[in-house]
Design a binder for these strands. Structure first.
Length: 195
DNA sequence: TTATGGATCTTCT
DNA sequence: GAAGATCCATAAA
């Protein structure tokens, strides 16, 4: 296999730590034998404590229960009547914390991504949480899937050892807990959704 | 180039 | 019945 999955304990660290460590890693999706892969360039942490913007802040519900599951699960939710967003469950089981993947840099399967997105410009393929779900055909079927064992959706180690600068700032697209510095992205990367 | 509003539907109150 | 971890087309400047 060209892509090597990250270790099982990768997801157990504190949520901001995992959010930071996810930068540069590869999100791999296998669709009907074809590989769709992208480098993770932007993430946001959603905590279990003192974070009103997190879905888990209201306690466990039918919608967010996956967030309270074991680290390494995929939490995929539907929002705004038309969009999916993809998260990775982190930290301790039962707490309710996760990392939202906000943007990717396409690596492989770009033609298929263009087809799914109905767009031709590469930058617009995966530079947003709902866009990357559309490009990789991630929908609610993946909610609760274990990224540690799933053959068709997982996180892989970085391909090159190239270093990059990480920017840490406040999250976007939310109304509560806006002041928490829980958004991470790769500096100077044009696939980041917003500066 | 920035601002604004519409799409569209699940979940929770 | 209201809001939402968004995106896109269109309008205004």
């Amino acid at each position: 296999m060209k892509y090597t999955k990250v270790k099982n304990n990768f997801f157990q660290d504190s949520t901001p730590e995992v959010a930071k460590n996810l930068l540069g890693k590869i999100l791999v999706r296998v669709f009907k034998g074809q590989i769709l892969a992208g480098k993770i360039v932007e993430t946001e942490a959603y905590l279990d404590d003192n974070d009103l913007a997190s879905h888990s802040a209201i306690g466990m519900t039918e919608r967010n229960k996956v967030m309270f599951g074991e680290p390494g699960l995929a939490y995929v939710y539907f929002t705004y009547g038309m969009h999916y967003c993809f998260n990775v469950v982190t930290g301790e089981k039962g707490k309710g914390s996760a990392v939202l993947i906000r943007a990717l840099e396409p690596i492989e399967g770009i033609e298929l991504m263009k087809k799914f997105r109905n767009k031709s410009d590469i930058v617009n393929l995966t530079n947003g949480p709902a866009k990357l779900c559309q490009a990789l055909k991630i929908d609610k079927k993946f909610n609760g899937v274990d990224l540690k064992t799933s053959p068709d959706l997982f996180i892989a180690e970085s391909i090159s050892n190239s270093t990059f600068e990480i920017v840490r700032t406040t999250r976007i697209g939310i109304e509560k807990s806006k002041d928490l510095p829980l958004r991470f992205y790769i500096k100077e990367n044009k696939f980041v959704s917003k500066k």
